[in-house]
């Protein structure tokens, strides 16, 4: 931080603010609320969370109300979204998992809508907030463990964490069980971090490219703007991909727990 750039038109502090302004404005559009000492104020992130949930519901709801036997384009999209959930999300490991595809499909559409909303300038990408993604991942974790215990019984489920036919069983079995325990916790952690990091990084890269113009001068727009556009386009792809990855991994984790014994 100590060195000075000759062409600097803005200070590094200002530049950092320009790049991070989306995430720094935590108190924007705020309605202060509290439960005890816990802050539950409705701020910009929460507003966009509401918006995303409302849009998710409306897109699917309107599609499900206007159902006809000879479908129009919109109905086909909604039905295909449902069909996509049934065919590509549910039943990854076995038929028991089909029960969970409406949940993961909801996750998919919800995260996708939030990702897309986040791409609009001056919005807030809720999925780039680690609190948000980790809570969704925590839900996945809770459901996974719940289904594992419910379907197999607690004893069998936890026993299934040690692979069968281990050599030197007395030492290896607890060790492998412990490894699996770590894995069980790292699953939701990576799930949450992956979505958060991808969306955050995408937005940051766009802002960094545009921030370079502020820092080095407007001539850099020749490079920066096309690059920002390219990354923006890539972000649309990432928005879909990450929503899909989050949904399918949730589905797979739950189904793996259901079929833990096999």
């Amino acid at each position: 931080m100590g060195f000075k750039l000759v062409l600097a038109q803005v200070s590094q502090e200002e530049l950092r603010h320009e790049i991070l302004h989306t995430w720094e404005a935590r108190d924007a559009w705020k309605i202060p609320l509290q439960i005890g000492s816990i802050d539950i104020s409705i701020n910009k992130a929460v507003w966009f969370l509401f918006l995303g949930a409302a849009l998710t519901f409306l897109i699917l709801f309107i599609g499900s109300r206007a159902l006809k036997n000879r479908p129009g384009a919109y109905q086909v999209i909604v039905e295909d979204t449902y069909g996509f959930g049934r065919e590509f999300l549910g039943g990854q490991v076995g038929q028991e998992g089909m029960k969970w595809f409406p949940y993961t499909l909801s996750l998919f559409v919800f995260i996708l809508v939030l990702n897309i909303i986040g791409l609009f300038p001056n919005s807030y990408p809720v999925t780039s907030n680690i609190s948000f993604t980790l809570v969704l991942a925590l839900l996945t974790f809770i459901l996974t463990q719940y289904m594992g215990i419910k379907k197999n019984g607690a004893g069998k489920y936890f026993k299934s964490w040690t692979p069968p036919n281990l050599p030197a069983k007395f030492i290896m079995a607890p060790f492998m069980w412990f490894l699996h325990l770590i894995q069980e916790f790292s699953k939701p952690l990576t799930l949450g971090l992956r979505l958060y990091a991808n969306i955050l990084a995408g937005h940051l890269i766009i802002f960094v490219f545009l921030g370079l113009i502020l820092y080095f001068g407007s001539f850099l727009a020749i490079v920066s703007v096309p690059m920002a556009v390219v990354f923006f386009a890539f972000e649309i792809f990432v928005a879909i991909l990450q929503a899909y990855i989050f949904a399918i991994l949730t589905q797979v984790y739950i189904e793996l727990a259901i079929y833990a014994e096999h």
Partner: peptide
């Protein structure tokens, strides 16, 4: 942004 209690609560 960890932990953002309001976002978690409303989420």
């Amino acid at each position: 942004d960890l932990p953002n209690t309001s976002l978690i609560f409303w989420e």
